[in-house]
Design a protein around this nucleic acid. Structure first.
Length: 772
DNA sequence: TATATAGTGTTTTTT
DNA sequence: ACACTATATA
């Protein structure tokens, strides 16, 4: 392509960004302003006009999905030689570097990557060892501190110097122990990938030099989300040439909690004097109304670079605002509207996204989607790779790949049951500690471990033998074969089959899916390795798995939606206390936190191309308690003339007032429920097809109108709605007869006689007993 | 050693 | 509401 072709379809600002080939460049790209387009064109310009070797260009993104998209667009535009261009996420780039040079830091090239579950188990073992009282200190809290420290490149030693109070000293000690264990296990957590890469560069200038020579032109997407470690990583790489082009939007910085440092983008010009700054303010995505709403909301933030998005688009529909009495109705409305739009042929399911602040909100939508038979996909929540059966199998694979990883070995030594208990594991562990060897090595010579009976030793040996066989197999066979072999050898699937429950069935299906993922990996990769497969699995993000081709409604958090766009978007739970979150409102620096929430709101609004609907529920169940909230302040920041406040017709075809008076609550609930049935007392079965992707779901709604007072929240307790002799229903035991009701302190203790289960004692509200 | 049950804690957002 | 842990018991 020549220069004219490359620049042809770009606007003036976009051209400016593409033409600034050398030196530091800051592209402030508003939502929907075509930043990926600019990046791709800029790469084409570098290669085809300036004559840069493709292999000297590096483009960094945050998610695999973004990397894949950029890769395919670059390939399409450049053609020959484009394969040489590096397009990678921060994390996978660091892994590549560390696999190659990690030995300089004491890791082998087979190091494991720990996810949050692994981190937690490791920290738990440290707590146990150091006898930390979990009443005063929580594993997760400590891990949080450590993670923040790593984001800021603070080593355990430095942490100890910076934190001299009692708690800080303890965290420093645990941080130190944690890092030592990771190294012993030949493992790194997510944050280590970056921190260690930086450490490698700083302690080994010759290694840094190699990469500085390779990556002569750097481009970084979503720059506003970079943390201190990522910033340092970039400045080191670009240290020689300063050819660093960053693209971001300070208004879309929503990852402060993960260490993102907004100063990286706000202060870019100070750090790189003479940087070319380009502002992309023309939006090509949304209607004028949607854009105006977004502008008006974000205008309320103080710490931001001045800008205002504009568009040549039509005004379009007004922003819809709908209010409901509770989350159930909210979900019902959203599902109903989607169903009728699709049925009328106006839109496909994939045109819709339902966004929410917290993952917990997804449940209501999921239930209603199932009832309404709408195809949907939930992004995030319980990750496929964090399911127990998947983690078990991966632990086997990791043991085969990296036997130094004690955590994985200990996870599977008794899975499936081999009769090896905690005490035997403890003895082997102590022996390993004393001898300075890994747990697995100790297990291999279990007969030398004091205190282990011959019978127990035999069981341990049969386990280590199995791993030995698998290891030999891994040398010659494929990964999918290896998985099949280990399943057969250990009888893992056999056990599940014997269980013969729906849950076990779902687990077997998940295992099959893992096998096909292994096959996929092996066909895709030119030189597949076990480490490579495990790495891909470890670094996958929920959003990466979303396929645009299948026609489903997408449900996800506002965070997960960043970078995506949809013709029609629902932003649900527009309530003060939920969005902005209670935690933000009650924090020590509410002003700052609310600004972050507002940016999140801005991100949500700007996902919509044509229709944006904001929904509000005045009551909502939060952790088993009914909570009432006011309309989100963000809604009020949208000018009234841009908003349609909505009317809704009831079952009788009468217009219902949704403008705010709650007096008709009883009326509405009466209308919505069928005669003789409670409004939401239905039970439902999950359709077979969705079981696999979401696991099992509990089979009953709770009544949204019932005020639940949990035994712990107040001293008050509600008398049971039944008396001795009445029939009651229990979720698991079915219908039974009440024999006795006693005051059990915080709650009523009820004795019930179930025909098939016998006499059971239980707390009334805890057991959710309902009169029949 | 394995299992059932009572008790406790949690959740805002995640590469 | 739900998951996880500690404890009791077989």
């Amino acid at each position: 392509m020549d220069e004219r072709e490359i620049l042809g379809k770009l606007n003036e600002e976009q051209k400016k960004a593409v033409l600034a080939a050398e030196g530091p460049v800051l592209i402030l790209a508003g939502a929907g302003s075509g930043k990926t387009r600019v990046l791709v064109h800029r790469i084409a310009y570098l290669v085809d006009v300036i004559g840069v070797m493709p292999g000297n260009i590096l483009a960094i993104t945050f998610t695999n999905k973004a990397a894949d998209e950029m890769r395919s667009r670059v390939d399409k535009m450049i053609g020959f030689g484009s394969q040489e261009i590096w397009v990678s996420t921060f994390h996978s780039l660091c892994v590549r570097i560390l696999r190659r040079y990690g030995e300089l830091l004491g890791y082998t090239r087979y190091f494991s990557i720990y996810d949050t579950d692994d981190q937690l188990s490791l920290m738990k073992s440290i707590f146990k060892e150091k006898q930390v009282d979990t009443r005063y200190m929580k594993e997760r809290a400590v891990l949080g501190r450590i993670s923040s420290a790593k984001d800021e490149l603070v080593s355990p030693k430095k942490y100890a110097l910076l934190n001299r109070d009692f708690y800080g000293e303890k965290v420093a000690e645990l941080y130190e122990a944690y890092q030592r264990k990771l190294l012993e296990n030949n493992a790194m957590d997510f944050d280590d990938l970056l921190m260690n890469a930086v450490e490698l560069f700083e302690s080994h200038p010759e290694v840094l030099g190699i990469y500085q020579e390779r990556f002569l032109y750097l481009m970084v997407d979503e720059y506003q989300d970079t943390n201190t470690a990522q910033f340092r990583f970039l400045s080191l790489l670009a240290g020689r040439t300063h050819n660093l082009c960053v693209v971001g939007d300070d208004d879309q910085s929503i990852y402060k909690f993960r260490g993102a440092n907004i100063r990286n983008i706000l202060g870019f010009e100070e750090i790189y004097p003479g940087a070319v700054v380009v502002k992309l303010e023309q939006n090509y995505r949304s209607t004028k109304n949607i854009l105006d709403a977004a502008n008006e909301v974000i205008r309320n933030n103080r710490g931001r670079k001045a800008k205002r998005l504009w568009t040549n688009e039509e005004e379009g529909e007004k922003i819809h605002f709908r209010r409901f009495l509770n989350g159930f109705e909210e979900a019902e409305f959203v599902c109903g509207e989607i169903a009728s739009e699709v049925r009328a042929g106006r839109r496909a399911y994939r045109d819709f996204a339902v966004l929410y602040r917290t993952n917990a909100q997804s449940r209501l939508f999921e239930e209603k989607m199932l009832l309404a038979n709408l195809p949907y996909r939930i992004v995030g929540g319980v990750n496929f790779y964090s399911r127990r059966e998947i983690k078990d199998i991966l632990a086997y694979l990791k043991t085969v790949d990296n036997a130094a990883d004690d955590l994985q070995v200990q996870r599977i030594i008794n899975v499936p049951r081999r009769g090896i208990g905690g005490s035997t594991v403890g003895k082997i562990s102590g022996y390993a500690e004393a001898g300075g060897i890994s747990f697995f090595e100790a297990a291999c010579e279990v007969e030398k471990v004091p205190g282990v009976s011959a019978a127990a030793a035999k069981k341990v040996t049969s386990f280590t033998d199995q791993i030995g066989v698998l290891r030999a197999r891994a040398e010659v066979g494929s990964i999918s074969d290896l998985i099949k072999q280990l399943l057969e050898m250990t009888g893992y699937v056999e056990e599940l089959k014997k269980e013969d429950t729906e849950e076990a069935k779902a687990r077997i299906e998940n295992i099959d899916e893992l096998i096909s993922k292994a096959v996929q990996y092996e066909t895709k990769e030119s030189s597949p390795t076990l480490s490579g497969f495990l790495e891909e699995v470890a670094l996958i993000a929920d959003i990466d798995a979303v396929e645009e081709t299948d026609d489903r409604v997408l449900l996800m958090t506002l965070h997960a939606a960043k970078g995506l766009e949809f013709p029609a978007v629902y932003m649900s739970g527009m309530e003060d206390g939920l969005f902005p979150s209670r935690i933000a409102l009650d924090s020590e620096t509410p002003a700052e936190e609310i600004e972050e929430e507002r940016r999140l709101c801005y991100v949500g609004i700007t996902r919509a191309r044509e229709v944006l609907t904001l929904t509000f529920a005045s009551e909502r169940m939060v952790r088993g308690e009914v909570v009432r909230n006011e309309i989100s302040r963000f809604v009020k920041e949208i000018p009234r003339e841009l908003v349609d406040m909505g009317e809704r017709t009831n079952a009788q075809g009468r217009k219902m007032d949704l403008s705010g008076r709650g007096a008709d609550a009883a009326l509405r609930s009466a209308i919505l429920s069928e005669p003789g049935k409670p409004a939401f007392g239905r039970t439902f079965e999950m359709p077979e097809a969705s079981r696999r992707t979401r696991g099992t779901v509990k089979n009953e709604y709770s009544n949204p109108y019932k005020k639940v007072s949990s035994p712990r929240d107040t001293g008050e307790k509600k008398p049971p709605e039944f008396a001795v002799g009445d029939s009651v229903r229990h979720v698991k035991f079915g219908v039974g007869e009440v024999r006795e009701i006693k005051d059990g302190g915080k709650d009523y203790l009820v004795t019930v006689d179930f025909p098939t289960w016998g006499v059971k004692k239980m707390y009334a509200s805890f057991a959710k007993l309902k009169p029949v």
